[in-house]
Amino acid sequence: MPRYAMVIDRQRCVGCGSCSIACRAENNLSEGVYWSHKITETSGVFPNVRFHYLPTLCNHCTNAPCVRGCPTRAMHKLENGITMHDPKKCIGCRYCMINCPYGVIYFNWKDGHQFWKDEHVLIEGATSSPAEEVRAAGGKTTPYYNPKNSKAPDIRPKGVVEKCTFCEHRVRKGLLPNCVEACPADARMFGDLDDPQSTLNQLLGKFKPFRLKEALGTDPAVFYIRDFSAANYPRTKGAA
């Protein structure tokens, strides 16, 4: 059984956000929900400032506090290391959101895609409302859903939490997570941590990786390598 993990190469990452868009499309996420997200920071003092971009997602922690605290095992670990969530068992207590140190779990506060139920017409007699569009397309709720995703619900269910699944439904079929597939800079690598020859392990051996909040002991399965900086500076004897 493989033990899945992801390496994100920050030197290659251009911060385009394709991963987030691909995730939204694949998992039919509602407005305001970001299973794939980012942390941005600026460092330095003006005019010497830099922008830093760190793509984020569920870390599929080996020692996952969200799993340990879930009263119904709705949040659970698969043998392949993926932290999965079963919406049928979730009581919506949000304790996992309190426990996750990374802020990657989202509660579905309302039915997904409310936009498509909106009867409001922007320009009377000229445009159609979202609800009219759905009716015209013959759809019942939203005009799109992902036919590839057979295990997780197509429409995000209300009253439960959800988060990144490493696209478990795709991985099972031998495909890559959609964020990995969509990254135009090939900054995301997905593979088996237990295979010493995997590209993943080669990268982890070549570059010193770091993981988020390692001191907490959650043992995340998302590793970051390198950093992007095209900058250079003149060599001196040390006076700065």
Binding site: G69, P71, R73, K88, C90, I91, G92, C93, G159, V161
Partner: peptide, 26 residues
């Protein structure tokens, strides 16, 4: 009225997790 899916509380019994303090509380 706080819980998102109170009817699924039945899974406290059907799918217990003794490592969770919340399970013990329930």
């Amino acid at each position: 009225l706080h819980l998102g899916s109170p009817l699924q509380v039945i899974y406290i019994f059907l799918s217990p997790n003794p490592s969770s303090p919340l399970w013990w509380l329930a």
